[in-house]
């Protein structure tokens, strides 16, 4: 082909750029087709993992598909439910607290009796080296919540030691643990209030995964 000659023409510029756009868009479209199902599966696996962390034990339903949207104190909350033999044994949902440098998002799991099965921080902006001990990778503090419930410790003891509660604070940082404790306490209160609905076995299954992307992305 004699490109040398063609390259000077005006229509050639349009055709070239248009052609390249066509080819690349096609390539991307094909790639999207080839990968979308795998990506979705991978994301679901991620979500599953984070749920399992706060909810140890065997359940026989797909938590991601057994959800319920309730009105919490700060807007809608997606509640994931874990069942054994059709009976709701535990729920998982997200709570938020105010940290030192912004909101701290946590996932918490609560069993049927109102005992905490686990709490994990999923997003925060706390000072590295000071407030980030709420991450399991940096400290064991977050495990303190396991097994606790609204009455244990009593409501007035739900706070960090500095405020007369039972939870440790870390050296140099009070605000971060205070925020997390407050958030977890709020989650328990929320559970207590909406207990009936959350544990209602008869609520029909709803396909929510795919619509609710919340927490779906790592």
């Amino acid at each position: 082909m004699n490109f040398q000659k063609l390259r000077g023409e005006l229509y050639y510029q349009a055709a070239l750029l248009g052609g390249v756009a066509l080819v690349t868009t096609a390539a991307l479209a094909l790639a999207d087709r080839a990968t979308s199902s795998d990506i979705a599966a991978a994301q679901a696996r991620d979500m599953q993992q984070s749920l399992t962390q706060v909810l140890p034990g065997e359940y026989d339903n797909d938590l991601l598909k057994d959800t319920l949207v309730l009105n919490g104190p700060n807007g809608e909350v997606t509640v994931y439910r874990a069942r054994r033999a059709g009976r709701v044994e535990a729920v998982v949902f997200k709570v938020s607290g105010n940290g030192y440098a912004g909101p701290i998002d946590c996932m918490m799991g609560i069993d049927r009796n109102g005992h905490i099965t686990g709490v994990r921080v999923i997003k925060h902006k706390e000072t590295p080296g000071l407030g980030d001990k709420i991450e399991p990778a940096k400290g064991h503090w977050i495990y303190e919540f396991e097994g606790k419930s609204l009455g244990d410790p009593p409501a007035e003891k739900w706070g960090v030691k500095k405020d007369g509660g039972v939870f440790d604070q870390f050296a140099g940082a009070t605000i971060t643990p205070r925020g997390v404790v407050k958030a977890v306490k709020g989650g328990l209160d929320f559970f207590d209030k909406q207990r009936a609905q959350m544990l209602d076995d008869t609520v029909p299954l709803r396909e929510t995964f795919g619509r609710t992307t919340e927490g779906g992305k790592p």
Partner: peptide, 17 residues
């Protein structure tokens, strides 16, 4: 997507030319 991007590319190419 294919058509719109192709047309966009063609127009931009024309403008550049």
């Amino acid at each position: 997507a294919l058509t719109s991007l192709t047309i966009l590319g063609a127009i931009l190419g024309l403008i550049l030319g």
